[in-house]
């Protein structure tokens, strides 16, 4: 099994496509950090102008922690695509290229092969998030320094003290991992159904975009279904930056996300074990 995982990782590591995610993350983070370095103060003044009507603000809004938060907030929209780009290709890509039939003639059960692919995909996702963490938080702190975190919500400003932030970021990366694992599981499931490499990636993104639109629109009809959409819960990491924390909400959302992972993977296992390889 370890051998299977090792070779799945080798395939991911040697495939040029796998580095698109790292390149995009690097580009976006560097772009945002450069822009904020040059013009961040204007941006901060723009969003805090209503507060500054009543108060002077003492202390530094723009710091590494805020940068990391802004980057996480921005990238949560792009990350699913970057993840699906690799995980959506795991089965269908091999089917399209013809190596799946060769792989499945090897003396491993299909469940083992799928499990190895899921594990390798998760490790890839983890590395992607670690890279994001290093760039967003590490580089952010290096360039912009430490400081309290200002979380700007639609109708609230939350200021978290410097010593109260790191654990929140760590946990939010864990939740981001779980959220993106849902995307990985979904694209892997779709990948089992088709022999074309691009289809599952596009369908995964289409589902995410559709669900996000439903989640964004304040239409009463959608209110009833929003709770069941995984995209609604994918942004629960932001609730880790609430004060006080609503653990009930966070646990519920994490539970729903894990439920999605379980269902998507279970369906993938069910279908993949029975799939006739005709490609």
């Amino acid at each position: 099994m370890r051998k299977l995982i090792y070779y799945e990782l080798l395939k991911i590591a040697t495939k040029p496509r796998s580095y698109i995610g790292f390149a995009v993350i690097t580009a976006i983070v560097l772009l945002l950090e450069t822009a904020m370095y040059i013009d961040g103060q204007t941006y901060i003044e723009f969003i805090t102008q209503s507060l500054e009507e009543s108060f002077d603000i003492e202390g530094k809004f723009l710091n590494g922690n805020l940068m990391c938060f802004i980057i996480l907030q921005t990238l949560i929209i792009q990350m699913p695509l970057l993840v699906a780009l690799v995980t959506g290709d795991t089965i269908s890509g091999e089917a399209a290229q013809g190596t799946l039939r060769l792989l499945l003639t090897k003396p491993y059960t299909r469940a083992q092969i799928l499990w190895a692919k899921i594990t390798a995909g998760s490790i890839y996702l983890l590395l992607l998030l670690i890279w994001l963490g290093i760039l967003a938080l590490g580089l952010g702190l290096l360039i912009f320094g430490k400081g309290d975190l200002v979380v700007l919500k639609t109708e609230q400003v939350i200021i978290l003290r410097e010593n109260d932030i790191l654990w929140r970021f760590m946990l939010s990366f864990v939740i981001a991992f779980i959220s993106l694992q849902v995307v990985a599981s979904l694209s892997l499931l779709l990948s089992c159904f088709t022999d074309n490499s691009i289809g599952p990636i596009i369908i995964s993104m289409a589902i995410i975009i559709l669900f996000t639109i439903i989640g964004t629109l304040d239409i009463p009809l959608f209110d009833h279904i929003k709770f069941f959409l995984f995209t609604t819960h994918m942004i629960v990491w932001r609730n880790l930056f609430d004060n006080p924390l609503d653990f009930n909400l966070i646990f519920t959302s994490v539970g729903i996300l894990i439920g999605h992972i379980f269902v998507f993977n279970a369906l993938a296992f069910y279908y993949f074990k029975r799939k006739d390889i005709q490609s």
Binding site: E53, K153, G215
Partner: peptide, 22 residues
């Protein structure tokens, strides 16, 4: 004790996509 305007920010800037607007 001061009078102050309640803070408000557009959804797009806060990126609270799923929050309900007041």
């Amino acid at each position: 004790t001061v009078e102050m305007t309640k803070f408000k920010m557009p959804k797009a800037l806060s990126a609270e996509l799923n929050s309900k607007s007041s």
